[in-house]
Simulated scan of single mutants.
Amino acid sequence: MRLRKKYWARPELEASHIVITDLYAHTGNWKEEFKNNNEIHLELGCGKGKFISEKSKQNPNINFIGIDLKDEVLVFALRKVIEVRKIEGEENINVRLMPLNIMLIDDVFSMNEISRIYINFCNPWPKERHNKRRLTHTKFLTSYKKFLKRGSEVWFKTDDLELFDDSIEYFKECGFEILFLTYDLHTSDFEDNVITEYEAKFTEIGKKAMFLQAKLK
C-alpha cells in the first residue's frame, strides 16, 4: 500500500533529539552519541515503534537504534517511543531513530559497534528475481557482519514460510549458527517476545509467527 505523503513528518523528526538525520556522522562514535558504553541493539524496519519502545523500556541498560525508510512511518515510531518511555527530556531516552534505506547501511556503523539485530516481519520479496532484497539474504547478512560483534545474534520473525525456510539457509551460508528455531512462536517456550503491531493483527486471524535466533560464529 502506497503511503500518503505527510509533509509535516520530516520537520517533526528533525526537531527531535533522538532522530539522527546526519546518517554517517556517528560512524564509529555511537557510544559518544548515547554518552555511555552500553551495548547497542539495532532494529531494521522499526515500523511504528511498538517493538523498539517496549524493548528499550525493558532494557534501560541497552541502547537501541531503529531504522525505517519512510518519514511517514518513522514519525509514529518517534511518538510511540516518547509515549512509552515517558522520561523527562529526550536526551535520557536510550533510543535513536534513523530515516534510512537499509541498502545504504554499510557505512553507518563501524566494526563491532552492534551487539544484536532485530528483523521483524520484513518484506518477503517472493519473486525469485527480487530475493536479494530480503533483509535476511546473504547479501545483507554479509553487510551486517561488517559491524556485528563476533558472538552477536540476529533475531528474525516472519509470517512467511518460504522466506523463513530460505532464511535458515541464508544464515547457515553466511557463517551463523542457529540457536533457536520455531515455526509457531506463540506456542513455543520462548519468553522474550515483544509483539509488533503487524504481529498482533495477523495472529488475530490465526496466522503463525515463525522465529529464529542466529549467532555469528
Rank of each mutant, 00 (worst) to 15 (best):
residue 43 E to W: 14
residue 6 K to G: 08
residue 78 L to I: 06
residue 182 T to V: 11
residue 165 D to P: 02
residue 119 I to Y: 03
residue 101 N to P: 00
residue 109 F to T: 14
residue 121 F to V: 03
residue 57 K to S: 10
residue 140 F to I: 02
residue 166 D to C: 10
residue 20 I to F: 01
residue 185 L to R: 12
residue 117 I to Q: 02
residue 41 H to M: 12
residue 175 G to V: 04
residue 1 M to K: 05
residue 120 N to I: 08
residue 188 S to Q: 04
residue 110 S to L: 12
residue 205 I to M: 00
residue 85 R to N: 15
residue 35 K to N: 15
residue 176 F to K: 03
residue 151 G to C: 11
residue 167 S to Y: 03
residue 50 K to T: 06
residue 71 D to C: 09
residue 33 E to D: 11
residue 161 L to M: 15
residue 99 P to S: 11
residue 55 K to P: 04
residue 71 D to T: 11
residue 33 E to K: 15
residue 216 L to R: 00
residue 67 I to P: 02
residue 165 D to N: 15
residue 178 I to H: 03
residue 80 K to Q: 14
residue 180 F to T: 04
residue 78 L to K: 08
residue 193 N to W: 09
residue 84 V to E: 10
residue 89 G to N: 12
residue 31 K to V: 09
residue 200 A to R: 14
residue 27 T to V: 10
residue 44 L to P: 01
residue 144 Y to K: 04
residue 118 Y to K: 06
residue 194 V to R: 09
residue 102 I to K: 03
residue 157 K to I: 05
residue 38 N to L: 03
residue 2 R to I: 08
residue 159 D to L: 02
residue 191 E to V: 15
residue 202 F to C: 03
residue 145 K to V: 00
residue 186 H to I: 13
residue 213 Q to D: 04
residue 56 S to A: 08
residue 139 K to N: 13
residue 181 L to N: 14
residue 123 N to W: 08
residue 71 D to I: 13
residue 135 L to W: 05
residue 87 I to M: 15
residue 106 D to H: 13
residue 3 L to A: 09
residue 198 Y to L: 01
residue 194 V to S: 06
residue 132 K to Q: 07
residue 149 K to H: 00
residue 93 I to R: 14
residue 70 K to I: 14
residue 98 M to I: 12
residue 79 R to Y: 05
residue 106 D to E: 15
residue 32 E to W: 06
residue 127 K to D: 03
residue 98 M to N: 10
residue 16 S to T: 07
residue 94 N to V: 11
residue 77 A to C: 11
residue 180 F to M: 07
residue 19 V to H: 06
residue 206 G to L: 05
residue 106 D to A: 08
residue 51 F to Y: 08
residue 122 C to L: 02
residue 27 T to H: 12
residue 173 E to H: 12
residue 12 E to V: 06
residue 108 V to L: 00
residue 13 L to E: 01
residue 152 S to F: 01
residue 202 F to W: 06
residue 75 V to D: 05
residue 89 G to M: 07
residue 210 M to K: 07
residue 45 G to S: 02
residue 44 L to A: 00
residue 159 D to T: 04
residue 88 E to N: 14
residue 151 G to R: 11
residue 67 I to C: 04
residue 85 R to Q: 15
residue 19 V to I: 08
residue 99 P to G: 04
residue 108 V to M: 04
residue 105 I to A: 02
residue 29 N to R: 11
residue 171 F to N: 06
residue 188 S to F: 07
residue 115 S to L: 03
residue 152 S to L: 07
residue 32 E to G: 09
residue 180 F to C: 01
residue 103 M to V: 13
residue 204 E to R: 10
residue 97 L to H: 00
residue 152 S to T: 10
residue 75 V to K: 10
residue 126 P to R: 02
residue 30 W to N: 12
residue 59 N to D: 12
residue 173 E to V: 07
residue 139 K to P: 12
residue 20 I to K: 07
residue 172 K to E: 12
residue 178 I to R: 03
residue 147 F to Q: 00
residue 110 S to W: 02
residue 124 P to Y: 05
residue 101 N to I: 00
residue 101 N to W: 06
residue 14 E to N: 15
residue 141 L to F: 14
residue 216 L to C: 00
residue 198 Y to I: 02
residue 142 T to N: 15
residue 50 K to G: 00
residue 113 E to Y: 01
residue 202 F to H: 03
residue 19 V to S: 01
residue 207 K to T: 05
residue 74 L to H: 01
residue 79 R to W: 07
residue 5 K to L: 13
residue 121 F to G: 00
residue 20 I to G: 05
